[in-house]
Structures are given as structure tokens and as C-alpha cells.
Design a protein around this nucleic acid. Sequence first.
DNA 1: ATATTTGCAAAGCCTTTGCAGGGGA
DNA 2: TCCCCTGCAAAGGCTTTGCAAATAT
Lengths: 141, 141
Amino acid sequence: MTAHCLPLHEIEARLRAAGIQPTAQRLAICQYVLCQADHPTAEQVKLWVDDHFPKISLATVYNTLNTLAQAGLLRELRLSDRDSAVYDANVSEHFHFVDEATGRIWDLEPTAIDVRPALGEGFQVRHVDVVLRGTVTTPAD
Amino acid sequence: MTAHCLPLHEIEARLRAAGIQPTAQRLAICQYVLCQADHPTAEQVKLWVDDHFPKISLATVYNTLNTLAQAGLLRELRLSDRDSAVYDANVSEHFHFVDEATGRIWDLEPTAIDVRPALGEGFQVRHVDVVLRGTVTTPAD
DNA sequence: ATATTTGCAAAGCCTTTGCAGGGGA
DNA sequence: TCCCCTGCAAAGGCTTTGCAAATAT
């Protein structure tokens, strides 16, 4: 739920730039995942695409999501207490807040959390995953 | 890998205190998981117990680990890039560092990281998960 | 005696893979 | 034409579940 909808040709350009053939199925998936969806699961992507594209298989959905993630256009997110992965169109560094009641996921700007690992020597940090869990009383954002 | 080995009767007492029957299988599992193991998977627990107990089923291993986790004696940990869960005898609040080369997991004392969520109003944080990933050049701990 | 627990096998869930057919370059 | 992509179904890996036998209180 990063974003403003991208025009189709812009999505197409992005795929090409990443060396990914902009097939009809991939474009359909991208329209949803890159623009409209809010941390959807593969199943949710499938459901949406089923309503907007004649025929697509779940395998293709998975394959496409993996391809996009590998190309850096999408981020796969696996949460401890969730059985299925979700996909995040926000690929810049950020953290997550999970509403324990609804399961809704919010993106947190990196400035919202100060992670300063004071590790022993020899530890080189390449990646930081932060997931906050709790409740939200105001439905705004 | 919290710990010094607990004597058997101490483990037994802990189980009783948690309202868990200290059966032979559970005691065997606890000896490994609470004392000797370092973030093992269920499969690893099974392997160890197979060498120290006549007969145990994988289902019982899973059930026991779940029981222990539910009782707060153990913490189940699911990492994004790992297909199977690992179990942590350290149940106090702490974070994790994953060596991307070896997969080894290190516990980080909570003071090692300063997480200060600057969230909007209405957000109540109940839990913070932090996983650092990177490399370790010195094998010390 | 009654309630738990175990073992085994089967099922479940999410995800990946193999392969033949189809579409794009 | 040639290669990549898709669909389908089957397989795969991890974990849970159902049920009868065994065990604990």
C-alpha cells in the first residue's frame, strides 16, 4: 500500500528494465501488487487477479511473485505467527507493525525506530528486520 | 544455549510448576532443549532424543515443544529465510543475530539494540522482534 | 478408575517443481 | 524458429491431527 496507481506502461517499463517479460499475467499481478494491495498473500493476489484476468494458476502467481521479489520490485515478508508469506511493494528499508487483533500490517519509516546494535567485534550487520506487534486504537494512517 | 545444565529434578519441578506432566519423553526433550541445545529445530531435537531415549515420535516432539512454548518455558522462533522453526531456551526479552554464512543464531541482550518506536498515537506496542543478519569473522561469543 | 500422553499414520497447508502446450521475440 | 512462460497436477517440507494403546495420578 505504498502507492498511487502506476499507469500500465510504467509497470511494463519497470518489468522490462528488470529484464522481466511483461506478460499479461505478470502485468495483471503487478497492477494489484505494486499499486493497490496492502501486504497481500499469494492467495489474495490470486483472488484479485481471478477477477481481472481470464485465467491464471496459483503456480504462476507464486512464480511471478518470486520473480518480482528476486528482481527487487517486491519484498517477500514472512511473519512468525503467519503461515503464509505476504508481499510488500515498499522495497525501501523500513520496518513493520502488526496489529495483533486484525493482522493488518503497517509500514514504519526507518526513522521511527532506532536500531543501534552494540555487538562484539567481528559481527557485521547486513540486514535488520524489525517487527513490532501490538494494538491500534485509532484506525487512521 | 542459555545455560548450565539443570539437574533432572529441577527440570521436573519446572514442568510441574507449569502444570505439565513430567513424562519421560518430555524430560528427555527438556534436557536437550533447555540445557544443551543451541536454537535447535524439531528435527534436531528428535535426532538427539533418539540417542538418549528408547522411543519417541516426531509428533510427540512437536507436541512437547508446543506445550513448552505455550507454558513459557521455551520460545518458538520462525525466521524468514528458514523453513523450519527453531526453539530458544532463553525466554527473557532479547533479539537475534543470524550468521548468513552458517545459519548460526546468536542471542543479543536487549541492551544491544535500542528500539524506540516513534509511532503515531493509538499504536500500542506489546512485542518487539528484532533479527539482525550478517556475518561473523570471529567465532567467539 | 479417570484423565493425559504417546505413537503411528494420515492429513493439512503453503510453496515449488516437472512437463507439455502456448505465446512472445 | 526458438526460447520463455503458463497451466495443471503432482510432489515436497514442515507441522498438526485422529485414534487406539499405553501411562500417569
